[in-house]
Every structure is written in C-alpha cells, then in structure tokens.
Design a binder for these strands. Structure first.
Lengths: 109, 109
DNA sequence: CTGGATCCAACTAGATACTG
DNA sequence: CAGTATCTAGTTGGATCCAG
C-alpha cells in the first residue's frame, strides 16, 4: 500500500488505502467525537506507541483527512481534528460498524 | 493483521481486517456481480498473480465471506460466490464508493 | 484449469532511547 | 508535551516452478 497512489481501479480502493492498517480507524473514531490532543489520543488508544501514533497522524494529515494545529507554547500543545472530508467518513464508518457487528455476532461467538 | 483476531476494540476493525490489503476489495467487487470462476477472476483483476488470487480467496473463504464450489471434473472447475454475510458487504462497499469518489474529485485531480 | 511450494525483496510495526 | 531516531522482528506480496 503506497501513499498517494492515484491509480485506483475503483474509488473504493482509496478508502482502504487511507483507512487500512492497524491504527487509523481507531484514531479516526476518536476524532469523530471532536478535537483531541496527542496525549489524549495516546491514552484513548490502548497499546499504540508514540511512533505509530505520530506516523499514522502524519499520513492522515498528508491525505487531507486530519487537521493538525500547533500552539506555539511551552510545553507544546498540538490538537488534531477532522477536516470536512474527514468528517464525511462517518457514513463509511457507520456502514462498517453495522456490518462488523453483525459479522461478529454471526461468526465470532 | 492476523487472521481470526477476535479481540477487536470496535466492530469496525473487523471490516479492515477482512477487506484490508491490496486485492480483497477488487475480488469482492467482481463477486458482487455474481458467481465467478478462478480464471474469470484472474482475467478481471489486472496484474494479480495466481498465488495472490488463491491466497486471498482462501482467506475470504476462511472468514465466511466467500463460498467455494468445486466441480470434480477434468479439467477442474471451481466457482466462487458470496455468502449471505458477504453480500451484505455491498452496503459498506457503496458507502466507500461514494466517499472515495468524492475524495478523488476533491483531492486527486 | 486450479492451484500449492519455495525463495526473496519490500514494507510494517514494535521496543527503546533521546530531544526541543 | 509531542514528538524523532534507530534497530529489529514479523508480515506482505511478487516471481518462478511444479502438480493433480
């Protein structure tokens, strides 16, 4: 999976390209409920390392899904929020949530 | 990403777990339009290798998304189709398609 | 025709230590 | 507080050859 791959055969691929991987959906889910600081995200997502959190956030920012706001103060304060197109992912998220819940109910218990 | 990981924090993760990777969505998309043979899928999906196609199909089968039907004849004939829960992925697919199209329109041209 | 087996390159993610 | 740097283990995907 490459960054900025514009050779999608189908628009659907863009979603997997952007949301794929272990952490991005969990990060997006946290941001759906509003702006969060780096440390808030870190606490909210169990087991994520600083490296992975900052890397995933940078990728989401590059793709225009997440907005990063730096407050130039000491100690540093950085806030992350969803862009307009990022907020629209909530519909995809809802569809995934509904299907996932049914799948788990059917197959994983 | 592991197979059969039942420790999802959120049902949404199941979708990425099942659909993640380079090929699964493209395979599912082909199967949405009906039952297909191995060779049909191979022709329909540009650049996929035999190994990847059979591997992805096996994973989708293990997860109960795809049904595999073998006709015991020579030469062999194997058909793949979506299970009921697999067919229900079409809603997720549609939401992804809509968002992806808007994203591409906005950011990738 | 429908794959399995093997080898290998590239990428991903975790652990740990360090910094303005 | 919010990261970066480095090292390493594990995973993914491609190429190629083989088989019922």
């Amino acid at each position: 999976m490459k960054l900025n791959n514009r050779d999608y055969i189908c628009p659907v691929e863009a979603v997997i390209d952007i949301l794929g991987g272990k952490w991005k959906l969990l990060i997006l889910r946290e941001l759906m409920s509003g702006t969060k600081r780096f440390s808030q995200l870190r606490r909210a997502i169990p087991n994520i390392t600083q490296k992975m959190l900052s890397k995933q956030l940078r990728e989401l920012e590059e793709r225009g899904i997440v907005k990063r706001t730096v407050y130039p103060q000491v100690p540093p304060k950085v806030e992350y929020s969803l862009t307009p197109i990022g907020k629209k992912l909530s519909k995809v998220f809802d569809a995934m949530h509904q299907w996932g819940a049914e799948y788990i109910k059917t197959y994983l218990r």
